[in-house]
């Protein structure tokens, strides 16, 4: 599995889509922060908020996350580099490595928003959330950055990033099944918007709420600066278990599948 991870990291360094996604996320996070300040300062009217939210972490990660799953999982099937991977380390290690590398890459997409939040808070400027995501709410809170606040922002950033990754982790078995980057991206993008809706609807059904709470789709898992350490840890645990389950599902789908 280590060989596969080393190979994947090398491929990422030479892969256009992954580097472009990470750069786009960095740019979007910076722009999103500036525009939220413009909303608060009145330089942009409230009607501009819907336009600004296109740059939010939720939208950007929903768009680029599935693209990363496609590029990192499905592309080796297209290039056939999967042949050497399977000869070298077997199917279990291949799926394990892909689960780790995609989870890390998609999580990394959210991190620029955490950094932008820290910088925004450090300026002491006002910010108006264009959409109520964890990062926007932290920015709007206007807390003064003490050492413990920085730790809290970082903790919420990591939690929100892992949560977003978990929501998109359904793309993992999908990528192993479909093996077509663009199809995975399209389905994953739609899923990114439907998932929360389905989670909220399911939570309203009698008896389903406790189950939904065990998934990353529960509205209770919205990390904020008010969340306790236990709540953040709970959200991370739910997210990691869900990602692991998606990895297991991917392995079950791929275990005896034919590779072209």
């Amino acid at each position: 599995m280590i060989n596969q991870l080393r190979g994947d990291l090398y491929a990422i360094r030479h892969s256009g889509p992954v580097l472009i996604c990470l750069a786009a996320s960095l740019l979007a996070a910076a722009l999103y922060t500036v525009l939220q300040h413009s909303l608060a300062a009145g330089d942009l009217g409230p009607e501009a908020a819907s336009g600004v939210q296109v740059l939010s972490d939720v939208l950007m990660v929903s768009l680029m996350g599935p693209l990363l799953f496609g590029a990192l999982v499905a592309q080796p099937f297209e290039t056939k580099s999967v042949h050497n991977s399977l000869l070298a380390s077997g199917r279990g290690a291949f799926v394990g490595a892909k689960t780790l590398i995609t989870a890390a890459a998609v999580t990394a997409l959210s991190l620029p928003y955490g950094i932008a939040t820290l910088i925004g808070l450090a300026t002491g400027a006002q910010f108006a959330p264009a959409v109520p995501t964890s990062f926007s709410q932290m920015l709007a809170s206007g807390v003064e950055l003490t050492g413990s606040d920085v730790r809290s922002v970082l903790a919420v950033t990591v939690t929100a990033a892992v949560l977003l990754t978990a929501k998109l982790a359904v793309c993992l078995p999908l990528a192993f099944r479909l093996r077509r980057p663009l199809v995975v991206m399209a389905i994953g993008f739609v899923w990114g918007f439907l998932a929360d809706l389905i989670g909220t609807t399911a939570a309203d059904v009698d008896g389903l709420a406790p189950l939904v709470r065990l998934t990353p789709f529960s509205s209770e898992h919205l990390p904020s600066l008010e969340s306790t350490g236990g709540e953040l840890l709970g959200t991370v645990a739910v997210s990691l278990v869900f990602i692991a389950l998606m990895g297991l599902l991917a392995w079950l789908l791929f275990r005896r599948a034919d590779v072209k």
Partner: peptide, 9 residues
């Protein structure tokens, strides 16, 4: 070659 050398360990 480098990628596949890494993959094959």
């Amino acid at each position: 070659m480098h990628l596949h050398r890494l993959l094959r360990g």
